[in-house]
Amino acid sequence: MSERYQVPIGVEIATQWAWRLLVIGGAGLAVIWLLRYFSEISVPIAIALLGTALTAGAVNWLQDRGLPRLLSTFIVVIFMLVAFFGMLTLVGQQLSTQATQLRANVVDGISEVQRWAETGPLHLTDSQLKGWVDRAKESISSSDTSILTQAGEVGSTVTHLVAGFFIALFASFFFLYDGKRIWSWVVALFPRAARDKVDSSGHTAWTSLTAFVRATVLVAFTDAVGIALGAWLLGVPLTLAIGVLVFLGAFIPIIGALLSGMVAVLVALVSQGPLTALFMLLVVIAVQQLESHVLQPFLMGRLVAVHPLAIILAIGAGVTVAGVVGALIAVPLAACLNGIVHHLVASAKEYQDEPEPDVPLEPPESAGR
Rank of each mutant, 00 (worst) to 15 (best):
G10A: 13
Q16F: 13
V23G: 04
V23Y: 08
P44H: 08
T55K: 09
N60R: 10
F74D: 04
M80T: 10
L90W: 10
S96K: 13
V107N: 13
E112T: 10
V113P: 00
E118F: 06
G131L: 12
A136D: 07
V162W: 08
A163Q: 11
F166T: 07
F166N: 06
A171M: 09
V187F: 01
L189K: 08
F190A: 13
R195C: 12
G202D: 08
A205M: 07
T210D: 12
A211I: 02
F212I: 07
V213R: 06
V217M: 12
V219D: 09
A220V: 12
A220C: 08
G235H: 05
L238M: 14
L245M: 12
L258R: 00
V263M: 11
V267I: 15
S271F: 01
E291M: 02
S292T: 10
H293N: 14
V294H: 04
L295R: 01
Q296H: 14
L299Q: 01
H307I: 10
A310C: 07
L313G: 09
V319Y: 02
V325G: 00
A327H: 04
N338V: 07
V341Y: 05
A346L: 05
S347V: 05
P355F: 05
E356M: 09
E362V: 11
E362H: 09
P364G: 12
